[in-house]
Structures are given as C-alpha cells and as structure tokens.
Design a protein around this nucleic acid. Sequence first.
DNA 1: GTCTATACTCGGATAGAC
DNA 2: GTCTATCCGAGTATAGAC
Lengths: 191, 191
Amino acid sequence: MPRPRTVPDDDLYDRLAEVFRVAGFEGASLGALADGAGLQRASLYHRFPEGKVQMAEAVMRRVRERFEQALEPMTGHPDVAAGVAESAGRISEIYADGTLPCVLDTLTLSGAPDGVRAGAAAVTGAWIDAMATAARRAGASPEQAQAAAEEAFVRIEGSLVLARLRGDAGAFRRTIAALPQLLLGAEQLPE
Amino acid sequence: MPRPRTVPDDDLYDRLAEVFRVAGFEGASLGALADGAGLQRASLYHRFPEGKVQMAEAVMRRVRERFEQALEPMTGHPDVAAGVAESAGRISEIYADGTLPCVLDTLTLSGAPDGVRAGAAAVTGAWIDAMATAARRAGASPEQAQAAAEEAFVRIEGSLVLARLRGDAGAFRRTIAALPQLLLGAEQLPE
DNA sequence: GTCTATACTCGGATAGAC
DNA sequence: GTCTATCCGAGTATAGAC
C-alpha cells in the first residue's frame, strides 16, 4: 500500500498551473515550479521522472478537467440560461476574476512540447464545443451556434490580455457578464 | 564619423521583435536573439550595453512606431471608411495575417521588466485611442467609440490566440475583415 | 515520498583582438 | 562594429540518505 502523498495530485497540478500560466513553458523554472508546489526540485522529479515536459502535460490534463467541470452546467443544466450563467461564474473563477492569464495562451508559446500544444488545442475545442451546444439548445442553428461560441472564446481570451495590459479586469468582467446574451441570443446574430 | 552599421537599428529591432513575440521575455534566450538578429551575442551587447532589458525596451518603442504608422490612415485619412480599411490591412501585416502572436501579449508575461510593461500599456492605449477616434469620426458618441475600440482590440487579441491554438488564422482574418463594420457602425451598438 | 548534495548544461554578460 | 574566448550564475537533472 503506497504511502499517502503530502500533496494530492490534483492540488499539485493546480499549483504548477499557477506558475506555468504566468511564466509560459520556458519561463517557468524548476525553482519557481518547486516553490509554487511547496516541494524541493528533486521531489518534483520523483512525481514527474520525465521532468518539466511531463509536468506541463499533467497540468494541461488537469486544466481540461477543470474546464469540463466548469462547463458541465452549460450543457447539462435543464434550464439553459441558468446553466450558462453558472458556467460563466465558474469560468470567471478559473481566471481569478480576470487577474490571471490563460494557460492556453501562455503555455503554448515557443518551447512548448508538442504534447502540451495538442492538449491545449483539445481543451480549446472542448470549450468551444460546449458553448456551441448551449447556443444550439437556446435555438441557434449549428452555424450560428459555432460562430457565437468562437466569438465568446475570442472575447474571453482577448479581454484577459487587455485586463493584464491595463492592470484592470473590467473588460473581462464585462465579457463574462455578457456571455449569456452572446450565447443565448445567437439566433439573432447574422451568419 | 561613425562606421556604418551592418544592420540598421530599425531592422535590428524588428528582428529581435520576431524572437521576443514568439518566446516572451524570459523565453527569449540571448542565443535565440543573436540568431534572429544575425549577430553574435557579444555584438548585441555592443548595441545594448544594458543587455536583454534594453533590447526589449527598444523593441517595444519600435512596436509603438510601427503601430503609429499602421494607424495613421485611421485617424488621418479624409475618408474615414477608407482609412479604417487601410489601417486594418496594415495591422494584418504586422501579425503576418494572423500567424504570429502579439508582442503586447507575450512580452508582458512574468519576468518582463517594468519599463517593457509600461511600454506595452502605452502602445495599447494609443492603439485603442486611434480606433476610438475613427469611431467618433464616423459619428459615434465618445462612450460608444471607446466601447467599440476596446471591443476591436479584444477581438484582435483573442482571435490571435485562437488562431495559434488552432493553427488556423481564419478567426483572425474574419476579425480584420469585420473591423470597419465594428468601428464605423459603432453608433448602432448599445452602450 | 521528500530531502540535501551534487553533476552538468545553458543562458547572461564581459574582455580584448581584429 | 563585429568577432572569439571566457567567466559566472541559473537552470535541469540525478544520486543517495532518511
């Protein structure tokens, strides 16, 4: 029977994600990752024998999991509007109300291993698909729903960049607040 | 009389920007910067005695200059619509039609010196101001113009992230194509 | 499973020849 | 102004004790 880990896997992945998301792959040093995890560097290598690449891949899998949890109400809640509102709130939490950069953006810059890039692309696809599903449930055509979902993704990512550049998360908060209107009013958009 | 430089300053800054924008500040190694510039590392230190920080600051000043040139038609062209269309094309060129990340995004991650962050904030402000000016010239109220300009910025930055994640610049191209409608039709948007 | 100690590589920066 | 050669610290990774 294995000895209990002092830091559970999911917590560890979340802590590492905090470092990767603000620093990118190459910018995240082992020292910074160890500090963030609350472990020594050598202890990280025990958990991730393949080193930083494996850490980033684990982080990306955990990110996908967190998004799946955040997006579940959007596709599963019986009341679509309530589900979208609930998911919008959970997405806002992931980004600490707009004060943290998106790991999909920052962890895919130069130096990122292919596996991490592929993982980020998969999260992006799953996220957009979930938003498109919500738009469809609200009555949009497949094309309208896909367009609205992509626009929502674009606005969230863009407003996070603006928030960081300005040191003011207002743009992000407005985007989150507008999410229900954007997805649920999709059938009113021109194709 | 100083000996002519083999690489003119502006060209050098542009080449360094190519490296910084895909790698971020910490991710851009001196070796990569030297390769991109076509110089040895020591030669870079002759141009930039204060090292990488000074390089990034020079790059940011050059970026501002390039945006000012790109945005000039938007504020200065007698025909606003023609000016916005021309500027949209020049912006698209800066991003190589959506295939290159935004240096404002990537060069402001963790590790970026304060001077670089301030420079990026200044470029952001100037860019949004120019777009707001165009919207005002087309008849929008100050509030409508500001909102439309911020939305345009958000969509450009967000679509660049999506383009990179997908390996498909379609979203960016659509955003650029929609820029005139977004800015010139601003008076039709709700506040 | 985590730690201290250590080997080794790479990145940032400088000296001095041409 | 650019180059080769070099120093030094930081970063990645491993060995082995507890």
